[in-house]
Design a protein around this nucleic acid. Structure first.
Lengths: 352, 352
DNA sequence: GTTAAATTCGTGTACGTACACGGAGTTTAA
DNA sequence: TTAAACTCCGTGTACGTACACGAATTTAAC
């Protein structure tokens, strides 16, 4: 409940402590060369006045630029998912460029762990002030953030989290809940006593794990609601169309499904199969706002897409780092993205 | 494709033009005291160098604070809707306070035009640098923005737009599309040949107009899809529970509905009626993330809520004004909010 | 042609902080 | 005893822009 109408600066602090602004500056940037007693006194005054450093003047005076490295998957032909986070990162970078922050981009191949470690090493060599990371490969990512911690480099995680890491924050989905919601939607579309197919498509084990969490969420819903559904599931480890087609063909011969739930953005591949086989009447639910998926949404082959603001993940990742580094404000440690439902009617208004 | 690695400043411009930085400064802030010829020369050099003023230094040097006024409805007992935009406004205000911007809040009563005009007059008297406005009362708002234009005060509109106004931008929903989506959802929930009730609840004519646009969108969907549904609608002009109860009772005696669509946030009132009358099996769709609505969502009385990020509307309104005033960047003239679907499963992750 | 007024422009200071430099005082080493 | 080293701190300049003040030049008026 203090009046803080008059913004106090270093010189007011200096006046009250009977020292020069240089000394105050030294304790603020905790540099050496101040006796313990005066340092203490100054800190006390700073606290008492609730001194807020003028970030404007600070950035103006400091000629050194802050450097942030982002390390995320490259968007491949297989999935353009990472285009969106990258755009968010770029947008944030544009906005804070004027404040003396530059962002360098590093990309790795989702199907090749070596590219990850290589880029990680490069980043460590360059001594960045902050790192934005998509920790797709758990082991390797753990090793990387350990190195960052050692070098006192703050880092933010997006898209998936790492256990026990002291990141600045995590920004991304709650996978379990996301599958749970998908199940809820499914139930709206279903007659009682119907059959559901869960399709998990991914090559790398690390990624596959995410899908299994979603699947758990999906199953949990039906369990909690004592719904009588017959759930069949398949794990497809080769994401090319031929493999998927073969697998689906086999399954569709054996079963009669009412709903198909694809646990990631590859839903368009299944949609393609539906289209080619002229399958209709089966509801299709999947993930992510990709052009391919949207096309099938428009054609009513896909019924619902679940999306978790990939672009905002990138954007928030950078701005969180910026706030941590420049403004030094406290950051929410876990920022779960909203779970958005996209249909043929609202996709035009969706912003990632 | 220019190299713009080396940020040029006024003094580089001054050097090239053979004048002092003072003169350059004069043409930058187009003040008087510069001959036409030198002014032209300087402008040319500025363009050639693609000079970007240093916003940091600019705000530091300029001791004057920018003042923004926000004029929105107070959140009443009847509806807490405006709480969210207000929070967004406050959040944005916090973030840009450090940059020398202050935001003053003005509120009016949605049921009383006089309170609007009174506050508007106050704002005009105080000479603000920018205005954020929710133009609920069309005529009065038009008069207000005309005055703003006259005084060269830029303004941003949120929640609803004004025809032919030269606002900095409009931020809010596309009402028609929003009703259209509601209809789409409805169709998922419906057996063929079913009956739908549309409920519009609002006292003031101006507000009621918004609802009618949503209703149009709702009907348009069924028309476009040649769906065979029986639509009944009612306009309730007294938002208290008793009036609504009476009207619903009358309607439910006459008809058998499968879906009820309430065109604004008052859906909780209808939900209360459902609960009290132990009506179940009828799907209920409405608007806005209010505590009352969420409560009924949890109890599965309300099935879907449509929401258009009211908090973000406030937030973006302020930051747009900030970008216009301080950074002088170009602003997207029409920023339609995404149309979000909220269910019992994802509401916890919804952020306004 | 002289003076006043108007026009056009340069200089200096300020904004709040960062940081280099160096000075005064104290301790250590020779 | 004196030089050197170290501790602690004050001063000055710089960051890029805004703006007040006043100087130089041109124009107007008689």
């Amino acid at each position: 409940m203090k009046k803080q109408e008059s913004p106090v600066g270093v010189k007011e602090i200096a006046r009250r402590a009977n020292v020069s602004i240089g000394t105050v500056d030294r304790v603020l940037n905790n540099r050496t060369g101040v006796s313990a007693s005066t340092k203490e006194k100054i800190l006390e005054i700073i606290k008492e006045l609730d001194y807020q450093p003028n970030v404007i003047a600070r950035r103006l005076a400091s000629k050194k630029v802050l450097r942030i490295a982002s390390l995320i998957p490259s968007s491949s032909r297989e999935t353009g998912y990472w285009e969106a986070p990258l755009n968010g990162i770029k947008q944030a970078a544009d906005e804070i460029r004027a404040f003396g922050v530059v962002v360098d981009h590093y990309f790795f191949n989702q199907n090749d762990k070596k590219t990850f470690t290589k880029k990680a090493k490069e980043i460590l060599r360059t001594d960045y002030d902050g790192v934005l990371l998509a920790p797709m490969f758990e082991q390797e990512a753990q090793a990387f953030v350990a190195k960052c911690a050692e070098k006192q480099i703050p880092y933010v995680l997006i898209n998936s989290d790492l256990k026990d890491s002291d990141r600045v924050c995590y920004i991304g989905p709650d996978l379990h809940k996301s599958g749970y919601l998908a199940a809820h939607l499914t139930k709206y579309l279903l007659p009682p006593q119907s059959a559901v197919l869960i399709v998990n498509i991914s090559r790398e084990m690390d990624q596959h794990h995410h899908l299994l969490v979603k699947e758990e969420g999906f199953r949990a819903y039906f369990k909690n609601h004592h719904a009588d559904v017959n759930i069949v599931k398949t794990d497809i480890r080769e994401p090319d169309y031929e493999s998927i087609q073969a697998e689906l063909k086999k399954l569709f011969r054996k079963h009669q499904f009412d709903v198909v739930f694809v646990s990631n953005s590859r839903v368009f591949t299944v949609a393609r199969y539906f289209e080619e086989q002229k399958i209709s009447g089966i509801k299709l639910i999947g993930y992510d706002f990709l052009p391919e998926n949207i096309a099938y949404l428009q054609k009513n082959v896909i019924d619902f897409l679940i999306c978790q603001k990939p672009q905002e993940q990138g954007y928030k990742g950078i701005t969180s780092l910026y706030q941590h580094l420049v403004l030094q404000t406290a950051i929410e440690k876990e920022q779960f993205m909203p779970i958005d439902i996209i249909t043929a009617e609202n996709y035009q208004y969706y912003r990632n």
